[in-house]
């Protein structure tokens, strides 16, 4: 039995690593369709990764070891996060290693490493990107935390597997706070993953970019690892969102036969497809904000989450009373 859970854990991580680039590719494809462009094939992201892995790494003359370690650390944190998030099943050995708050910490570790690596060479863009990334980060974290507070108030836990299990045991609750929290979460997701209103993953216009500015000095396998880690991060965020707001289909504790897993995989893929299309839609209809509008955007996210909390404290308590 123990072996089985570990096998399931391993399978989940491998699946996450494998389909994360596909998810990113799917969003790019949806965006292309929405913008009336002909879309690249779905395998484009894999091809790019393959190409990058086989190139020679061009490294700045005085790059320190930190610069070369950071991509691996980034990849490592994202894979660990994928192991912790219950994307397919809740009975995972790694899931107990961290609750959602610790998961935020894990993402923060990745962010700090990336920013430090960006500052290592000492080019203007690297430092600029690092500064902006940290700024977005410290504004997004409180908002995300408030979303988790909401979840805690609903199900009395910050551990994602318990949340999913808790949802399964009382599924009929439509709490208004959930809607607030969900909107706030989507806003944080957009900001944290360098998506459109805050950053543009497709831009190479130096003055406006955040994430790309940090990567300017990276090439070949290091760049490939970072890109892969970014797509994993997006995948992870999506899966956190599913666990918090759309936990249908995830194989819960106890129900973990082969059929349940099959359902879980199907549900995950359907949800990812829909979420990707929705993300592409959001990105297509919104314009990129000026960098100093970003705090406003994130303040809104934070505010929504807190409002959800307040509404829950008042209305939620009253409906049960």
């Amino acid at each position: 039995m123990r072996v089985l859970t570990f096998a399931r854990q391993f399978g989940e991580v491998v699946l996450a690593i494998a389909i994360a680039p596909l998810f990113a590719g799917w969003i790019a494809q949806c965006r292309a369709w929405l913008q009336n462009r002909s879309a690249p094939p779905l395998t484009q992201t894999y091809r790019m990764l393959r190409k990058l892995f086989h190139k020679d790494a061009a490294l700045a003359v005085d790059a320190s070891p930190l610069f070369r370690t950071a991509p691996y650390v980034l990849f490592g944190t994202m894979v660990l996060a994928a192991a912790i998030i219950p994307s397919l099943a809740t009975d995972l050995p790694f899931a107990r290693a961290a609750d959602a708050i610790a998961l935020i910490g894990l993402f923060a570790t990745a962010r700090v490493f990336m920013s430090l690596a960006a500052m290592d060479i000492g080019t203007s863009f690297g430092t600029l990107g690092a500064r902006r990334e940290m700024m977005i980060g410290f504004l997004a974290e409180p908002a995300l935390l408030m979303v988790l507070f909401n979840a805690f108030l609903l199900y009395g836990s910050t551990a994602l597997p318990s949340l999913v299990d808790g949802y399964a045991s009382h599924p009929s609750v439509i709490d208004p706070s959930v809607i607030f929290a969900a909107v706030a979460f989507v806003m944080v997701l957009l900001a944290e993953n360098a998506r459109v209103p805050i950053d543009n993953p497709a831009t190479h216009l130096e003055l406006t970019m955040i994430h790309e500015a940090m990567l300017l000095e990276y090439s070949a396998r290091h760049l490939a690892l970072i890109e892969w880690a970014s797509s994993l991060k997006l995948f992870n965020y999506a899966c956190i969102g599913f666990a918090l707001f759309l936990p249908w289909g995830i194989a819960i504790h106890g129900a973990d036969g082969a059929s349940a897993l099959l359902i879980a995989v199907t549900a995950l893929i359907v949800k990812l497809a829909l979420a990707g299309a929705a993300l592409a839609l959001i990105e297509s209809v919104s314009a990129k904000l000026r960098i100093f509008r970003a705090p406003e955007f994130l303040a809104m996210a934070f505010l929504l989450a807190v409002l959800g909390l307040l509404v829950h404290l008042l209305l939620g308590v009253s409906t049960h009373a």
């Binding site: 650390v73 990849f75 490592g76 790694f94 290693a97 836990s157 318990s162």
Partner: peptide, 26 residues
């Protein structure tokens, strides 16, 4: 543990293991 748990050891071990495997694989 159902409400919240954290393990620094698994964090470190997990990251180190993935970094090691990724490095060797690359």
């Amino acid at each position: 543990p159902e409400q919240a748990s954290y393990s620094g050891l698994i964090f470190l071990a997990g990251i180190v293991a993935v970094v090691g495997v990724a490095f060797v694989a690359v």
